[in-house]
Structure formats: structure tokens, C-alpha cells
Design a protein around this nucleic acid. Structure first.
Lengths: 217, 217
DNA sequence: ATAATTTTTTAGATAAGACTAACTTTTTAT
DNA sequence: ATAAAAAGTTAGTCTTATCTAAAAAATTAT
């Protein structure tokens, strides 16, 4: 279908669109892709010719519907492979990205669908990002940081930001894991620390901890 | 490490060496790779510069130790992925090759080792070909066709050559599967047909059937 | 043994994707 | 409002891996 390079550009533009909202700049794409702006210009022209992006000279680039669909296909593959690497092969959080970056370009719809089934149709990847379905639909809301929640809010732990052994051990010791239901019992204005409830147990956590846990409400 | 293309050439030369034995011809490589001989000449020169093959103009190409090790690495990856696709994702025999052809180029030693562990260190792929270990050692003998065995010989079914639904159903009905122990009770010189014993039961099979079953003695 | 055929190599061309350097447009600052 | 800076584009080059066409070497046939 599309080349590895084209797929990577589409993915980069997709991610940047979520932040920029007003047409993605050539420089931004170059930053994300770790290439030079001139290379980006060449590629977005090519993608525009294929109907995957809207490109206006000097103005910026946006995905067309076709381009968005293609980008979501790559995102879906990336996130499903990440789940596989972590859940099935027991990789560490920080090891999966580079490998998923390669695996996401394997050409086979059937492969990803079977993998999805094998993993029992996960909704989120290990970073808490939602996995688009076969048709490119993302059912679920975007994740929030635990630190953003208020007293009384509750949700489900869907991912972590920090992946250092120290931090992961901290969570392990308290049996806080992906999928855990977390409720904010109290929040200190002074330092942002919290008292949370996880499976019946209560814990005091600092703001720094709360800023590294992704939650879905 | 090496490019996808380089890996494919190394693998092709490895497979051809097993048959040709006397230095692989440029045309043979071109046939295997589905490229033109001139492309092969270019590539084997490049591989020779990297110390991966011995190349003598007009004479042929052989793998160096370094090249053989690299080729075995690719073969190992290919075969482990094939096991994964068949055993874990329930693909059909004939669907796995093209996908494994892509997956074998994923750069990560750790990935393949973890996959190997997950699959419980298989010795053979679904076609009955032995899987090299981490160090490139192939413990086991090469497979033989059941048709090559003589009366009284016995072995284990390690793979099939034909993968048509008709043939696979034929085996299924008789509970003949990978791993089955097969003994040749009789063999007809006239047409090569056989009487075999599989898990206590006896079956009459034609030469055509026997030519599509791979056995390890 | 020499001619015909086949195999292999060389030379030059092409496409994809990236780069540098120079130039143009847009944005920012005075 | 215009000069300076930043952002973006163009033109031309490079690398990898291919190809075609022509030339050279090796093999086969008479």
C-alpha cells in the first residue's frame, strides 16, 4: 500500500494535528521525523499528489479523510504490537517503542486482526492511548493524568508516563497496575499530593507520582 | 546491522549453497531473488567488500563464516515467526510465508529470543525445517520425504510440502499431525504406495501422499 | 578447435528518500 | 512600515537498489 516512509509521515502528521489544530508546519514535521525541512516539503507534495494530505505552500499540511484513515491504521498496528510486546513477551515499558516502530510497517491486515483477537481486543495500549478499531474508530476518550483529577473523581489506570524501574517497583509494591480502579479521596492544594483508594486500600502519593499515571474516567 | 536487501541475498545464497555445493551461480541467485543477474553482481560485490561472501568473478559465490552466521540469523527469525503465526495466531500453512518474509527483518535480537521462549524453544518450523539456535547451530538433521523411507524405517512427522485444504483434511481425518510417529510397514515397488502405522492405526497411502510429508528419523 | 550459445559483468539510467546550499515567503521586531 | 529573522521551498547532489543494453568470459556443440 504505502511505503514505510510515507506511513511514518502520515503518523507524524496525525500526532501533530492533535496538538497544533491549525495545519501542521513543515518544521514541526521535520522535528517529529528527525529529518530536514526540505525533505518534508518533498514528501508532503508526494502525499498531496496521492490525496492523503491537504498541502498549501508556506501554510501547512493537514490530513485528508483518506490520509487520516491510513494514519490510524498505522497507529492501530503500533499500539497493538506494543500490547503484545508487553503482555505476551514481557518486555519492559521502555523497550517496546523502537520495536513497535518497526513492526507497525508489516503489511498484513490479517496479521493485525489475528493479533488483536489473540490479545482479546484491547482498548488501550500500555501507555494508556486508545487503540483504533479496524475501521479507524477510537471509541474511548483520551487519557488524563491522575494529577488533573479532583477530590471525588475516579477512574481506571490505563498507563504510565515514567517507566523507570524505581517507579514501576513503587507501583508493584502497592499492587497498583494497569486496569486498577483509582479514586481520589483527598487532594492537598499546597503540594498537589493526594490520598487515593485502590482496590479497598488507601495510599498517600505525591504530586510527582500523580503526574506519571494516566487515567480514564 | 545489514539492510533488508542484504539479508535477503544472504538467505538466498545460504539456501542455494545447500543444493549447489560448488559456489552459487549469479543466475541461480537472480532466480531465487527474482531480480536480474546484473543486480546480483552488484550486490555480491558489496557483500564481498563487507566480508560476508567469497566472490570470484565468473566463478560463483560462497558464504564466509561471517556471512553464514548472518544468514542463519535471518533463517532463525523466519522460522520462529512461522511457528508463531501458525501456533499462536492460527494462520494457515500457505499464509505464513509472505508475512514471515517481512517479520524476519525486524531488528531486535531480544525480540526473537523472547518469542523463542514464548513458543517454548521449538526445534522445527511448521515445514519441518530445523530452527538454528542463538549461536547459529542447527542441532538436528535435515528432513526427509516419507517417500524416501524404506520398509521398517520410522520417524516423526515434522512438516508438509503440499498445503492444499484437501491434503490437510486428508491428514486431519486420519489424525496424522505434526509430531506424529510414523512407521513404514510396507512399500510397493510398483507404484511407491505404502502401508504406514500412525499411533497404533494402519493406513494405506499413495506415493503422492508420501511425497508431501516431511519426516525426521 | 573453433563457432555458437549461455552466463556473467560493466556501464549508464532510474526511482525513492534523504541531504546541502541558495533563494523566497512569511513572521517578528523595531 | 520596513528591516531582520525565521520558516519554507527549490535546485541539485548522494545513496541504495534496481534496471536495460552492450561487452566479455565461459561453456557447449559441431
Amino acid at each position: 500500500m504505502y511505503s514505510k516512509s510515507e506511513e511514518n509521515y502520515l503518523k507524524a502528521i496525525y500526532h501533530l494535528e492533535a496538538i497544533a489544530k491549525h495545519g501542521v508546519s513543515t518544521n514541526a514535521i521535520a522535528g517529529e521525523m528527525e529529518t530536514k525541512p526540505s525533505s518534508v516539503t518533498d514528501m508532503v507534495k508526494k502525499l498531496a499528489d496521492k490525496g492523503l494530505v491537504n498541502y498549501v505552500k508556506y501554510k501547512g499540511t493537514t490530513l485528508t479523510e483518506k490520509g487520516k484513515k491510513a494514519a490510524l491504521g498505522v497507529v492501530r498496528k503500533h499500539r497493538i504490537w506494543e500490547v503484545f510486546l508487553l503482555e505476551t513477551l514481557d518486555f519492559q515499558w521502555d523497550e517496546v517503542h523502537d520495536i513497535a516502530e518497526q513492526l507497525e510497517h508489516i503489511k498484513s491486515q490479517e496479521l493485525i486482526n489475528r493479533l488483536d483477537k489473540f490479545l482479546d481486543y484491547p482498548d488501550y495500549d500500555p501507555h494508556g492511548d486508545p487503540i483504533p478499531d479496524k475501521n479507524g474508530n477510537i471509541k474511548s476518550a483520551e487519557k488524563k493524568l491522575l494529577a488533573e483529577l479532583k477530590k471525588g473523581n475516579q477512574g481506571q489506570l490505563v498507563g504510565v508516563r515514567e517507566t523507570s524501574p524505581d517507579f514501576l517497583q513503587f507501583l508493584d509494591k502497592r499492587s497498583i497496575a494497569i486496569g486498577s480502579k483509582i479514586k481520589v479521596l483527598g487532594k492537598e492544594f499546597f503540594d498537589g499530593s493526594m490520598v487515593i483508594q485502590v482496590q479497598g486500600e488507601q495510599f498517600f502519593i505525591s504530586k510527582k507520582i500523580a503526574e506519571n499515571l494516566y487515567i480514564h474516567i
